[in-house]
Simulated assay, not measured.
Amino acid sequence: MSDPVLEATKAPAVAELRGELLRQWGSSEVWRLSFGLNSVIVKRGTDGQADEAAAYERFVVPLELPAPALIHRYRSGGAGILVLEDVGRVTLEQEPTADGFLAAAELAARIRSQATAGTRAPTSSPSSPGASEFPPERVKELADRIGRIGFDLGPLTEALAGLHRDAPTAVVHGDFVPKNLVTDGRRWTAIDWPGAYLAPHLSDLYTLLRDAVALSHDREPIVARYVEAAGADPALVERQLLVGGGCFYLVALTFVVEEGLRTIPESAGWIDGLLSELEDVVGALA
Rank of each mutant, 00 (worst) to 15 (best):
A117I: 00
E137C: 00
P96K: 11
L84S: 08
V14M: 08
A104N: 04
A115G: 14
D166L: 13
V257R: 04
E85W: 03
H173M: 10
E266G: 06
D184H: 05
S2T: 15
A268E: 13
E266L: 13
P155V: 07
V139D: 02
R225S: 06
R219K: 09
E279N: 10
V42C: 10
I264K: 11
P129E: 05
D99I: 06
G36R: 10
S27M: 09
L236V: 07
V5P: 08
M1W: 09
A103L: 06
L21A: 04
S39T: 03
A230S: 13
S34L: 03
P200I: 15
S216Q: 12
F101Y: 15
T207Y: 07
I146G: 00
L205T: 06
I149V: 09
R186V: 13
G88M: 05
H72V: 04
S203H: 10
W188S: 13
A284W: 02
E7V: 15
P122I: 02
G118V: 08
P265K: 06
A214D: 11
F248M: 09
L142K: 09
I146M: 01
D218M: 07
A252N: 06
N38G: 07
D211F: 12
A103F: 00
E220H: 06
T183L: 04
P66N: 02
T183A: 05
R165N: 12
R44N: 01
F101G: 04
V87I: 01
Q114H: 12
T123K: 14
T189W: 10
S39N: 03
S276L: 11
M1F: 08
K179H: 14
L261V: 14
R148Q: 13
S216P: 01
L160T: 05
T119K: 02
I264L: 12
S203M: 14
